[in-house]
């Protein structure tokens, strides 16, 4: 496999992990965040500082990065999750930008605007795919357990969720922390793939991109999120010349989707091969005279 293709796959994997987190938060809990790039930044810097400055082994950095991101989400959530939906969104936006500025100004530790370089290249194709598969399965199982069901109950009918005994504040907190941990993992992998990070990589457009991807894939469909990430990561790579118009394309895609199909590519459904088989069967049956003659009734 060429280094280029390998690189694209690794990028897809990293984006998928971050988007899975947002999918749990936004698609399944209906909490909108425009600050998840901030959690990516925390995971990236925490892990990179550990491996570069303290010589910590990569697996340790991969565990610590997401944990610190989740702890940050716990703190932020305690302060803001009680707020009504749109206020929560605004605070996450403020948080993401504050984190970016914090890393920008903490120059002695983070290298400031020049960035942090010399990070060991530890994110191999194997590791990226392996962690992505685990992250997907973990999220898939999570959503099919009481945890995921409680989040969906909050999404559907918060008052009824409380009325059946769900501590909605606690489970929103869980959702936020898990989304931050996924972002932190993506950030850690990113740092050890690029070998270089700088605050600008984790700006507001990056946060917006994650949420937009989830909306395009379908709020409430994990496989839709993955599908949308693959499309939105690979297409700009294929049409290199269009890459600079990426945000414009994202914006247009969202407008078109919201207008044509507000539930996103997949709606609430998960991707399965069954519709393809059905389509195949239908075409097959149409061409099969014995079938059409047979069902007279």
């Amino acid at each position: 496999m060429s280094g280029y293709v390998e690189g694209v796959i690794i990028l897809v994997c990293i984006n998928v992990i971050a988007v899975l987190g947002v999918s749990i938060l936004t698609g399944f809990t209906r909490l909108f965040s425009f600050g998840n790039a901030g959690f990516m930044a925390i995971g990236a810097y925490a892990s990179a500082i550990l491996t570069t400055k303290y010589g910590a082994p990569f697996p340790v950095a991969l565990v610590v990065g997401p944990i610190i991101a989740a702890i940050a989400a716990l703190g932020l959530g305690k302060l803001t999750l009680k707020l009504k939906g749109d206020y929560f969104l605004i605070t996450t936006l403020g948080f993401g930008e504050s984190i970016r500025l914090l890393f920008l100004f903490a120059e002695p530790i983070t290298g400031g605007a020049r960035g942090l370089s010399g990070i060991p290249p530890k994110t191999t194709l194997f590791i990226a795919i392996g962690i992505t598969v685990l992250a997907f399965l973990g999220a898939w199982n999570f959503l099919r357990s009481k945890y995921g069901r409680n989040l969906m109950a909050i999404r559907e009918q918060e008052i009824a969720a409380e009325a059946v005994g769900i501590d909605t504040a606690k489970f929103k907190e869980y959702s936020f922390m898990i989304s931050a941990a996924y972002a932190g993992m993506a950030g850690a992998l990113l740092a050890h793939y690029y070998m270089f990070i700088s605050p600008i990589m984790f700006n507001l457009p990056k946060s917006a991109e994650l949420t937009i991807t989830v909306v395009i894939g379908g709020l409430g469909s994990l496989s839709g999120s993955v599908l949308a990430t693959i499309l939105l990561t690979v297409l700009p790579e294929v049409f290199r010349s269009a890459a600079e118009y990426r945000m414009l394309l994202y914006g247009l895609a969202v407008v078109v989707i919201i207008v044509l199909k507000p539930s996103g590519l997949m709606g609430y459904r998960e991707f399965s091969l069954r519709p393809i088989f059905k389509l195949y069967e239908r075409i097959f049956k149409k061409n099969d005279p014995t079938q059409t003659k047979g069902d007279g009734k």
């Binding site: 969906m152 109950a153 559907e156 009918q157 008052i159 009824a160 969720a161 009325a163 409430g220 609430y268």
Partner: peptide
């Protein structure tokens, strides 16, 4: 609830 509150999409 008087005005039914189910988890509508589930």
């Amino acid at each position: 609830f008087q005005n039914i509150r189910l988890f509508g999409n589930l």
